[in-house]
Amino acid sequence: MQRELTCINCPMGCQLSVTLEGGDVKNVEGATCKKGIDYAKVECTNPTRIVTSTIRLKGAPLCALPVKTEAPIPKGKIAECMQALKGIEISAPVSIGAIIIENICGTGINIIATRGI
């Protein structure tokens, strides 16, 4: 299987052609440096992202509390994670870095507050 990617390591934005065989990266073409090859491997085998969003906040002038996953979670879990954050409500005060939800969607990663209010 072929996959086309744009490398994000620098403004060059190399167009990478990745050859996959049974989920393993067999070949990466188009990278002008090693970073591109590493990026392609991670993106094609275990892509992860930090998810940032907001949850409802009560008892403060601000209505939304910004939160994030403490570490990157698998890309495939983003939608599930967003769904889990819906309907969550918290009351001020909240301190920055406070754990809001433990082990979000079974990822082993916590949702934490990114602002103290």
């Binding site: 940032t52 910004p66 994030k68 920055i96 602002r115 103290g116």
Partner: peptide, 24 residues
């Protein structure tokens, strides 16, 4: 304060912070 996404501070703190975290 409204830039809640991550990617701030890579040069200054060598970590990826959100906007409010960087400001704090």
């Amino acid at each position: 304060n409204q830039c809640i996404h991550n990617g701030f501070g890579l040069h200054t703190f060598s970590e990826e912070l959100t906007g409010p975290e960087y400001a704090s």
